[in-house]
Nucleic acid binder design. Structure first.
Lengths: 339, 339
DNA sequence: CTGTTAGCGCATTCAT
DNA sequence: ATGAATGCGCTAACAG
């Protein structure tokens, strides 16, 4: 009885043999929607429990061609925004029976090889976060019909669905807000300018300023605390008048605040700072950062919906969908009314 | 020629047929250590490239019984320490050809079901980070001989290998250090007291103080910024004299700093604060936190070594190894010399 | 409802 | 060095 416990891998056949029934009957017990009598189901379940049997997902997926695995590609785990996103994807997809195969990219540069490896595992779909595909990879996936959703990044004429915050709107509203509060000498600290997020936030910001006839300075902050810290130093030490800085993400805004404090520039009395994301850190009392809240919950939900729809109905997906979801202003203490 | 591109899944047989050779020959080309002539290898490789063939890892693992997947279970992604750890595991294991199946737990409570699902995927090993196994799960894994390494957590009489920082030593050195710097009224803000990390750090701290005849207050900080923020408020608003706080991790130390500042208590002039971890945030100029550096690189390396050794030589692993690696003090600006 | 059969895509004997 | 045959553990189609 108990010697099953010693066995390395108990298979459905083992259970079947022990019970004097066929392997397929055992299999049916573990196959949703298959028909088994209540009595045999009970017997099988008990024996499985006893013997420590669990269906082998690998073997199953070989035949069903459903691995129930989804690849997730993530670059910048240093920005708290992303671990949070990862956690939410894990939870939500877990509820639906999917598991995450995690790939971390260096420098947000997706290596073809890493991604091919994902495919070899028959992932049913891939979520790409803060990174872009090389065009050769893109067409490979297109040919292979592997569903992909870009999260928080997109490209012109992309071959794949994308979900992000409405970054243009966010940038625009931030510009308006800063102007409304009486700021006239503005600066933008950018992330990697090749990213749609940084690009769009800047674009919206620029539109708002242009409408009112204002211009602004741009510095490169690399989407990192350190990068923005240095950028802010350059900005504040220059001769340019400056009363507000819009940072393309929160982590850079925090770097900007710290840099300002370091050289005795008061926030917000001397210069206002506004971020983008609304990460947990932004609410810490050390910062109390005024920022733009990305609707992460909705973005996650939209991504999953798009991905699963594509997975379930591969045929009707010639149409590329780009969802952009509006965020909202979170007023804290780093922007002052200058009137 | 090109119509292969339209095909859903190109198999080894497809390639073999196109080349007029056997499936096994094709297979051998992709099997390290198998013998194929240079000429046929070249032909196969070219055809595979043409036709978009890649070996199916699922099918392969079914027969080799090597999935090349490792499960990683992680709880608190809000503490930046862990995303960083995840990223490093991903990189290092990736180099060795392993992929990560990621599971996020709620409340650091590993649900049996989630873990069983990992097993169904034939993960070759599991890394458990900042969470513990229920004892029923533990014995299940023991029976199944699935290698597990606990990272940054361990239990008495654990059935599994564990790797962590030498937390007792860390706590001890911190106690000594604070005393040496002339502090006499000490407090400890704990994480979850059921965790070995919090427990051991406290234990070492306590030893150091006892040796010199000092006592200390304990407050519960829950390993979170918020929890520690409140704990610090309680501490500072009480009538107790206080000149130094040791927080069981960095994120709590940051909460403590912010709480102190909020009510006008100067750091380090009025009270010194020291953390544990040395996360990136600790070095930010807003905090300049003096802390204890966990040797993350070494811890990761040790974990991987233990895990892979166990995977490769399952038989000789009745011996449970617990590796604890010494950390080091990082002096910044939150501890003052009170002499 | 259950047993028999076939085969998913591959690595691995055993021949040659 | 290569081909033929076998089976990993499972689900699905087909009988009954």
């Amino acid at each position: 009885m108990e010697e099953w416990l010693m066995q390395k891998n108990v298979t459905a056949s083992d259970v079947a043999r022990a019970l004097g029934m066929s392997q397929s009957t055992v299999s049916r017990v573990f196959t949703p929607g298959a028909s088994v009598s209540a009595k045999t189901r009970k017997k099988v379940l008990e024996a499985a429990q006893q013997m420590g049997y669990r269906p082998n997902a690998i073997a199953r997926s070989l035949i069903t061609k459903k691995s129930n695995m989804i690849g997730i590609v993530m670059g910048d785990v240093k920005n708290p925004f992303y671990p949070n996103v990862l956690s939410m994807f894990s939870r939500e997809l877990g509820k639906k029976g999917y598991h995450l195969l995690f790939v971390n990219t260096k420098n947000n540069q997706i290596s073809d090889d890493e991604i091919f490896q994902l495919c070899e595992y028959n992932v049913e779909g891939i979520i790409i976060t803060d990174a872009l595909l090389t065009s050769s990879l893109a067409s490979y996936f297109k040919d292979k019909q592997i569903p992909i959703v870009m999260f928080n990044r997109y490209e012109q004429n992309s071959l794949f669905h994308a979900v992000s915050c409405d970054n243009i709107d966010g940038g625009y509203q931030i510009g308006k807000y800063l102007l409304t509060k009486g700021h006239r000498h503005l600066a933008f600290i950018s992330g990697n300018p090749n990213t749609s997020t940084s690009h769009d936030r800047k674009k919206g910001f620029q539109e708002a300023l242009q409408e009112s006839g204002y211009t602004y300075t741009t510095e490169y902050g690399d989407y990192t605390y350190e990068g923005s810290y240095q950028a802010t130093l350059r900005l504040l030490k220059s001769a340019l008048p400056l009363d507000a800085i819009f940072c393309a993400n929160d982590i850079m805004a925090l770097g900007a605040i710290d840099a300002a404090k370091e050289i005795g520039v008061r926030i917000p009395e001397d210069v206002s700072i506004i971020g983008f994301d609304d990460i947990d850190l932004a609410a810490w009392s050390a910062y109390s950062l005024t920022t733009w809240k990305q609707p992460v919950n909705k973005m996650i939900a939209a991504t999953i919906e798009l991905l699963l729809k594509h997975i379930e109905k591969p045929e009707q997906n010639n149409l590329i969908i780009y969802k952009s979801i509006k965020g909202s202003l979170v007023e804290r203490k780093t922007v002052m009314d200058r009137h």
